[in-house]
């Protein structure tokens, strides 16, 4: 079957495969900081397994919100999709979940109620030290951008925003915040 030389070569390739696998495993377990995945994404570690890097979600996104990671995010996450809400937020059209060939992005119908129950990209957090409305001025821009006003985000007197539990983390509030740096921000785990 195999000559001795070929067997040695096979072992060398196998060893390299084991080393590569170990390195990627460590990198996959590493904590990635402030990364927002597209809607319907599996939990981070399982997402990295399931994503086949086909770029279709970025291709179909009608808002160019989906970007792809470069080598600076580590080898295990290279070429996977993410969203920078401050640059361009998700407008919850759910097209990326329909086009994904794997289960990395779970299929979610384009129905406001289903989106509200199944999408959890993160949760908005208001920084009251920064927010204009909490510092003597009134603004309310985030409330007007929210796709689920009074369900995900409500305002108190003087337009002071309060994030509710049903927030899906689409990031439209972060996108439109007029404060620099943004006073409302999406965090994946709070």
């Amino acid at each position: 079957m195999l000559t001795r030389r070929e067997f040695i070569r096979l072992s060398a390739f196998g060893g390299a495969g084991i080393a590569l696998g170990g390195g990627l495993l460590l990198d996959r377990r590493r904590e990635r900081f402030l990364i927002i995945r597209p809607p319907g994404a599996l939990a981070e570690e399982r997402f990295l397994s399931s994503c086949v890097r086909c770029f279709k979600c970025g291709n179909i996104c009608p808002n160019t919100a989906i970007r792809f990671m470069g080598p600076e995010y580590g080898p295990a996450a290279m070429d996977t999709p993410y969203i920078l809400p401050r640059d361009q937020a998700c407008m919850l059209c759910m097209k990326c979940t329909q086009v994904c060939p794997t289960d990395a992005l779970q299929k979610i119908a384009d129905d406001p109620q289903e989106i509200l129950t199944r999408v959890r990209m993160g949760k908005a957090v208001v920084d009251e030290n920064l927010c204009y409305s909490y510092n003597g001025r009134t603004c309310g821009v985030c409330y007007r951008a929210c796709p689920y006003p009074d369900v995900a985000l409500k305002v108190k007197l003087f337009e002071q925003p309060v994030v509710l539990d049903k927030c899906v983390g689409c990031g439209l509030c972060e996108r439109v915040c007029i404060h620099i740096p943004q006073a409302i921000r999406i965090y994946t785990e709070v």
Partner: peptide, 11 residues
């Protein structure tokens, strides 16, 4: 080798 790496790392 790549199948081994994929099986170990889950990527």
């Amino acid at each position: 080798a790549l199948f081994i790496a994929a099986a170990i790392s889950g990527v």
